[in-house]
Write a protein that binds this DNA or RNA. Structure first.
Lengths: 230, 230
DNA sequence: TTCGTCATGTAATGGGTTACATGATTAC
DNA sequence: GTAATCATGTAACCCATTACATGACGAA
């Protein structure tokens, strides 16, 4: 029924939190501005939007009103549907943001989470970064172990591939180290961003959007994969 | 009907080409030895194997014969099904190997292709490497363009994520450059991994896919002299 | 007038996972 | 005796893509 799961939903809510938008534009933002996530197709985007509306997290609004269409001919192509985050949607997004479970460390998910660090409280940021790091370190451990076991039987190319893969992961760990470091040293000041929370417990978020002093260098290479491998 | 698509099929054929195996072991090899690909689940592996059998590319063989089970109690758990590549399967795999279309440059696919470079002719290797490189360069171009367009409006974290992503891609390009370089400089010898011995005996194929002289690679030690051939 | 972009949507399909079912063997 | 590992499989589901349908507008 719903759960056009995780990352797409999350990204949509996050983008709409910044400002209302219609689907087409949303999709572009998903590729470019936040180009990190892979481009979602309309085939997944629009249905997902519908679901979120059904959930009560978004509402549809007419894009360009008749008057607008008259005033600015540029505006009126096909009836745009502008999606706006509701209060519940906001609340829901904030809840998602605060989640630090293992999901948050997975490759794709992590990138999405990171992209919205600007809206994320500092302790959550830390947990996510550290979670990701230990996740990668586990991975490294496994890779090293398996490499040690099989090194002899592998040909040069396989070996090289393995080596390159490990190096990528190591680089990302270093990158995370620097980020964690700079978070730790970073501003303590809470400094609220936009979104003054309307109801309930006023979530005090340190949403400065700018990390302490960001380092250089790093490496991701998003696929080396891994699996549950239980 | 079939097409348990691309990469899994490809990897199975490739691994079985080296030696027959049963499903369970195959799966482990997919994670560890060739740990580059993400771990496929049994839920995709076994059905895929069936399909390949149906296609005539594999045949099932009894794993441990009754006698074996008596002789070596270690061997007989549940009736293993050992899969062996047929002649047609081999042919098919070789055809897949020779393919250099755009598919071969995609992230996952590329890794799989690279993992079997040991069995791949040099010109195909070159085409794949160069294809991948230009694919990544395109990607970089786009990223740079979109970054230039939106740089101002992005917060520090998004920016950092973007930067990190680009750096990763750049690194892979450099890696490819070195590989291409070393392929170019490498031995001219055709080193056709083609099945010298089509059948039977456990004759170890000389598939030491040691490339000409691989880049640094810490301690891999790519064997300076004329290693293989024997 | 045709092409590219804007704009929204649906149906079929693909390619994978999880959860389940089954059961023998080994290690503690 | 109970857990882990070995070993094979099926069914239900998930998430996303492709191809298709529709249509207006601006520019060449």
């Amino acid at each position: 029924m719903s759960r056009r799961s995780g990352i797409l939903e999350f990204a949509i809510l996050g983008l709409l939190r910044e400002s209302p938008m219609h689907g087409y534009e949303l999709r572009k933002r998903l590729n470019t501005s936040l180009g990190v996530f892979r481009a979602f197709s309309y085939g997944s985007l629009y249905p997902c939007l519908k679901t979120l509306v059904g959930q009560g997290w978004l509402i549809e609004e007419p894009g360009s009103t008749p008057q607008d269409a008259l005033a600015t001919p540029l505006a009126g192509r096909r009836a745009k549907i502008v999606y706006r985050l509701t209060a519940e949607g906001k609340e829901h997004f904030e809840e998602l943001l605060s989640q630090t479970g293992p999901d948050a460390y997975e490759d794709e998910h992590f990138a999405a989470r990171f992209a919205f660090f600007g809206q994320t409280s500092r302790d959550v940021r830390m947990r996510v970064l550290e979670g990701r790091r230990s996740r990668l370190e586990e991975r490294l451990e496994k890779m090293r172990a398996s490499l040690a076991r099989t090194r002899e039987r592998l040909d040069g190319y396989t070996l090289e591939l393995q080596r390159h893969g490990m190096e990528s992961v190591e680089r990302e760990v270093r990158w995370l180290n620097e980020l964690i470091e700079s978070e730790r040293a970073g501003r303590e000041r809470p400094r609220d961003a936009d979104a003054a929370s309307p109801t309930g417990d006023a979530a005090q978020q340190d949403t400065s959007g700018t990390p302490g002093g960001l380092p250089r260098s790093g490496e991701t290479r998003p696929d080396p994969s891994d699996g549950p491998t239980s």
